[in-house]
């Protein structure tokens, strides 16, 4: 192998191999390290959905990178057999962006929780969506800070009682799907960790989508904010014959508060940053210092 792997031109990546030499199962994407999550944690469902999705796509584990931030959910890379980058709180998106921009041949995930993606790192979401970098962002939303033991988060409901909000949360909860839609994400979906099969289908679609995909996953925290009962009754499928090209309808639906819709809210095709940024791909020259310096003579 060369020192500098050349990315495949145009940013196409390995997809479902037509006749794979080895058929990989979800188990092949699970790592040696056993998850450290609490029993019943929603993140188990997400792990299972991601590995199922990768098996459906039959991508090679060494061509996948899971980039994460900090928090319970951000431990994900350690529990997989793929490559991984366990970063800094809030920075999964820019870490993943740099990787994908420089190596469009890889399948890159940015994963994190609601603290990572809606609070400390919320400033990156508008930009990655606007640039339309082809990464799959999975936000595991438990509406609480689990790793630090239960403080309120930007997606906790108004009035939510926690150790950091002993008199009730005063702020209005962020609406991740609505934000992703308005920021210009080209694939926006919502899943539920208690429905890992459906979630894995969403992830397959998100990976196959060319451009930035955002999936909010309701992923309850059994330890500090157990919302399984609540979501079991709130979740519902998208309306029949849902037109995923209709941004206004998607925004309207994302504003809905009495139901939690699951599925692909919106998808559109738009130029992908790392492909647009390679418009000179055909005429790339090796760097020649002497000729470069002539401009300073």
């Amino acid at each position: 192998m060369s020192d500098h792997p050349r990315s495949t031109a145009g940013g196409t990546r390995t997809r479902v191999a037509p006749r794979p030499e080895v058929v990989r199962t979800a188990k092949d994407y699970k790592g040696e390290v056993k998850p450290v999550w609490c029993p019943g944690c929603g993140d188990f469902g997400v792990l299972s959905a991601v590995t199922k999705a990768l098996a459906a796509l039959q991508v090679k584990p060494y061509e996948v990178v899971i980039v994460s931030g900090i928090g319970c959910s951000s431990r994900m890379p350690y529990f997989m057999s793929t490559y991984g980058l366990h970063g800094v709180h809030g920075r999964a998106i820019p870490l993943a962006s740099g990787l994908k921009l420089s190596r469009p041949d890889l399948t890159v995930f940015a994963m994190g929780g609601d603290g990572d993606l809606m609070s400390i790192g919320a400033g990156h979401l508008p930009h990655v969506a606007a640039r339309n970098i082809d990464i799959t962002c999975v936000m595991m939303d438990n509406q609480v800070y689990g790793l630090t033991k239960g403080q309120g988060s930007p997606t906790s409901p108004m009035g939510h009682l926690s150790k950091s909000t002993p008199y009730g949360m005063i702020a209005k909860p962020a609406k991740p799907v609505l934000l992703a839609l308005t920021y210009g994400a080209t694939f926006v979906a919502r899943g539920y960790s208690a429905q890992p099969n459906e979630l894995s289908e969403l992830i397959v679609e998100a990976v196959q989508h060319k451009g930035f995909s955002f999936i909010q996953v309701q992923s309850p925290c059994t330890e500090f904010y157990n919302t399984y009962d609540q979501y079991d009754s709130l979740v519902t499928d998208l309306p029949e014959d849902w037109d995923r090209s209709d941004l206004r309808a998607a925004i309207d639906l994302a504003l809905t508060e009495d139901k939690v819709h699951l599925g692909v809210f919106f998808e559109e095709e738009r130029p992908v940053y790392e492909i647009e940024a390679r418009k000179f791909e055909e005429e790339v020259q090796p760097f020649d210092l002497t000729s470069y310096l002539r401009r300073f003579a």
Partner: peptide, 14 residues
């Protein structure tokens, strides 16, 4: 933060 994080991501990729 995004600037240096992107560089770390790129460096991870070689």
């Amino acid at each position: 933060m995004a600037a240096i994080a992107s560089c770390i991501g790129a460096s991870y990729g070689g």
